[in-house]
Every structure is written in C-alpha cells, then in structure tokens.
Design a protein around this nucleic acid. Structure first.
Lengths: 293, 293
DNA sequence: CCTTATAGTTGACTACAGTCAACAATATGC
DNA sequence: GCATATTGTTGACTGTAGTCAACTATAAGG
C-alpha cells in the first residue's frame, strides 16, 4: 500500500481526534457523564432490553446498571422488569428523556452544521461524498455477511423489520397471506440461502436467494436497516447472493420489487439488472428485474 | 444547508468516534496514560520549551508537570532549565524516548493500514481524496490568516523556517545576502503587507506582497509549514494576497519561484498564473510568473 | 530595590470510566 | 425438585483526567 495513503489517513485521524474531543465536550455540557448521554441517546424511544443495550455499547453490567440508575433518578428513563423474563429488565425513555435525547440530537446537528457552515454548495456536495466514502471505508472492517438459518433469531428479526417497513410504505399495506409464500427450506442450502449482514455483530440487513436447479435464481427479502444505509451493505449483499447463484449454475438472477423502494431500483439498475415483464404475479410488486450471468 | 448533508456528516461523526476510541486503546496498550503518550509524541525530537508544549496541547500547568515527571521517571525524556530563561524548562527526548515515539508512530501507521487493508488501488485513491477533503473541511474553522508586522515574532519564525527549508533544498543553498532585499517597510501597509496563517493559534504559514503604486504587485515569501500542507492554506493565503493587490489597484500580480518547489508551481498554474521571462534577476529563482487582474 | 508578572511544582481535590466479586432473583435442563 | 446458568444490583476498588490554589524561583520594568 502506498505510504502516502497511510500518511494522508493519519493526518486525517489526527484532525478527527481533535474534532471528536470537541464533540464530546458538547455532550458533557449537559451536566452528566458522556456515558450516560450516550446510553440515553443509543437506547432509542421504544422499550429496549437492558442486556442488548449493554452489549451494543460494550458496557460492564455493573457500570451500565449505575448509569441507568442515574438516568432514572434524573427522570429520563423508566426501567421495568421484562414481560418475557422476570430476571431481565427493559428500559424506556420518559417524555422528559425523549426531550433530552432530542436536545442532544440538536446539539449534534448544530456541531455538524458548525463544521459545514461557510462552505459553498459545491464544496458541501464534495464534503458529503467524501464523508460517505470514508464512512463506508471505516465501516467495512466491522461488517460481516454470513449464511444463516432463515428461522434463526437474527434472520427473523430482519424479516420482521422488513415487513413492518414495507407495510407502512405501501398504500394498501403488506399482507404476507397474499404474498408468494417462500418456505424456509427454499432459502436453505442446497435449495437456496439466506444471508444476514452484521455491523459490530448486530444484524443490519438480510437477503435471500432461491436456487431452483436449472432455473434462474430468485432474490427475496433484500433489506438494510435504516441505521446502516449508505454504507454499501446492499451492494456487498448482492455480490454474495449473485456469487451463490453463479456457484449453483443458475443462468440468470431475477427478482421483483416495488417502485416505492427507490434505492433498491437504483441499486439493481446500476448492477446491470434490466426490467422485464411480470413473471410471477406477486401482488406487492410493480417491477421485475433480470440479469444474465 | 441541505439537511441530508448534516445527516451524512453526523453518521460520519458517529463512525469516526468509534474508530478514534479504538485508536486510543492502541496507545493505551503501551502501559501509560494516553495523555503521556500524546505528550511524548507531540514534543518531537529536539528540545522544546515546556510552556509551548503545554499551550499546544491545551494542558493545565500542574497536569503537564506531572505528566512530564512520569515520562522522566520512565527515562523517556530529559527536562532541563532553559538556557534563555532560568524560570522556564526545555524537554528533550532521550534515546529511549525517541525509540518509544517511533514505536507509537508505527502503531499509528499499523492502525491506519488496518483500516486501509483490503481496498483496491482505485478505492484507496478514492479514500485518499476523501480524507484530504474532510481534513481540509474540518481544519478550515481553526485556520485564520491575518495581516501582521513582518518583524513580529510569528512572522520572523515563519520566514526563518522558510529560509532554512530552501537552504536545505537548493544545491547551492540559499544566501540572503545574494537575494533581492525586501525591507520590512515594503511589506507593511500601505506599501505592501505580510500575512501569517495560524492553525489553532500556532503559525503555520506566511506570505508577503509588495504593492508599489501603479506597478504590478509582487509576491514574496509564500511558505506553509510541512505539518499543515495539503490543507489548502496556500490557496487561502493566495486568495488574500491577490485581494490586497486588487484593492491597491495593481494591474497584475507577479512572483518568482524555483522549480524545486513543485507544489508552489502547481498552485500558481492552477490559479491562472502564466510563466514569463525573468523580470528581476533574482539568483535563487528559475521561474517567473504573472497573472493579470 | 521593589513591584509585578511568569514558569513550574506540589498538595488536595473532584469527576469520570471501568473492573471485579459477592449476591439475590429467576430460568432452564435434567 | 435440584443443579446450573443468566440478569441485574451493590460495594469496594483502581486509574485517568483535570482543576485550583498556594508556593518558590526567576525576570523585567520603573
């Protein structure tokens, strides 16, 4: 690797270290430890299992317990026993906690705006592209894509998220009963495969492929979590799904999608998929694609 | 400012915060506080005044004193009274300290290489460009360019650095006695100006302009510190010097330079300067440029 | 010479970050 | 029903970061 790339990157790291320090000062301005703010921010609005929160942030059980207690004392979160497991607890933000998280969000936005202020539109576009490139590069190492059992917990979670999202997006919702049924065995080797993408070990996306012998492969349930979009996850997922199709000897890859999923359409077209006529009558789809292998 | 730019940048900040944390862990692996490693790394090899070191790192006097003492106890630095001022002290790395700093450098290089590993050459080039763009953007806010007295301490320091650098670069050295003399008054309003660029308050570059009434303006002593190159400092400096020339009614801007200063030549040509014949006989120059205003 | 400013040291202190082990309550598998 | 594992709480502890004020030694200006 050229040494100058390493040097460029190190200068970048030095600058960024400084900037991150300033960012943390902003969080500290809220009169509580950075760890507590981070916890409040990271937990989101809905009820979260404390154990998953702890794991996500890499916190010690005792430490997390104390941080949560301090947030509870401030009246920002409510911690209650989990309905599923009386040992476990779930944390929820109180209205005050939501307000505070919103404020933290605004502070972060302001910090970002402060950095971006004073640049022209074309410079901003350049900075935007550069930030995306580096975000992708820095993330790549922590991203893994693995073949899993489509009935595993992570796979189910992804599919549930996917269905919930398109149900909210489509005017007439998404009704699994009307959709073409895909059984678990069809997405399990050797008849197919189901992949889950994980970022820092947390599932952030999925994709399935049916591999009927001698016929075109068929992609199903490609989804990327909103938090992980723009990182190129879908592209990597597509690479792997296509590689499986090639390995199985499939002559082509086909799929159906909906024009409301704009990013998906763009991805397929940029990867050489061409629109074809409806080949399966899937009621939730309005576009069908095919790519020869 | 478009909201999506803010969102892109915030995602970038989140990713980078994580990465910086990992970087600090590497430094901590050396068995001493991060602050001490940073101090050792930042002080460089030569003797440094403790006060300037403290200021550069933004450390409390008491805290810095203790960090230095701990490095001294480890045998990594030697702290002695300043020859100029018996109150002040200067710190120097011992051979062991230099070794340790080299090791820290290597750890940082390795960390950078770890991030960059696995990318193709074209991806690396893209990442390099993106890192440069963001480094520039993140730095811009902390960069100031001001008109100063050419005999002020910061101005003198920059000019000394500049002369030392070209003296080392030119085969026959740089001899101020042979060079065309430019008096301080020629670089002081209204006959001219001398600008110093500062990053986080520390001088990192300079540039002078002579503004003889009715004649072309003449640029002198454009220099950017090695540590601040690639940040666009020279470009901003040139903008301001040209603005002064325009304000004074100069019909053109001229300058001499040497082809060994390759970055300078590229900058001038990208800014619309065209090469012209020798117009002043400066012995250290081998190229002359002019730009009509 | 005297006043005032500056450089550094030291002691006392606070807050944050994080670890470890003991423990209570509850689940789970046999 | 009992051994074992899991979830969270609590107490005790360490190390890092950083602040503040008192103090000594030296400089610089009138």
């Amino acid at each position: 690797m050229p040494d100058r790339h390493v040097q460029t990157f190190r200068q970048f790291q030095r600058v960024v270290t400084r900037e991150v320090g300033a960012l943390q000062d902003d969080f500290l301005g809220r009169g509580r430890p950075f760890g507590a703010s981070r916890l409040l921010w990271e937990m989101g609005d809905g009820p979260v299992e404390v154990s998953s929160l702890r794991e996500r942030l890499g916190l010690d059980a005792g430490y997390a317990s104390r941080l949560l207690r301090s947030l509870e004392d401030e009246g920002l979160v409510a911690v209650r026993p989990s309905p599923d497991d009386a040992r476990a607890k779930v944390a929820t933000r109180t209205p005050a906690g939501t307000d505070e998280a919103t404020l933290l969000d605004r502070l972060s936005d302001d910090a970002a705006q402060g950095v971006l202020a004073g640049f022209s539109d074309s410079e901003l576009a350049e900075i935007d592209a550069a930030a995306r490139t580096l975000t992708r590069a820095l993330t790549r190492r922590h991203l893994s894509i693995e073949t899993v059992d489509p009935q595993s917990r992570d796979a189910q979670w992804c599919v549930d998220q996917f269905f919930a999202e398109i149900d909210a997006l489509f005017d007439s919702g998404y009704d699994p009963a009307k959709a073409i049924v895909v059984g678990a065995s069809e997405l399990t080797p050797p008849h197919g495969a189901f992949l889950v993408a994980r970022l820092h070990g947390q599932p952030v996306g999925c994709g399935g492929v049916k591999l009927p012998a001698g016929e075109p492969a068929f992609l199903k349930r490609m989804w990327v979590a909103p938090s992980a979009r723009g990182l190129g996850v879908a592209g990597l997922m597509l690479d792997q799904l296509e590689a499986l199709a090639v390995a199985s000897g499939a002559p082509a890859v086909t799929l159906d999608t909906n024009s409301l999923l704009t990013a998906a359409g763009q991805l397929y077209e940029s990867r050489g998929y061409r629109q074809v006529a409806d080949f399966n009558g899937e009621p939730h789809a309005d576009r069908w694609y095919r790519k020869e292998l």
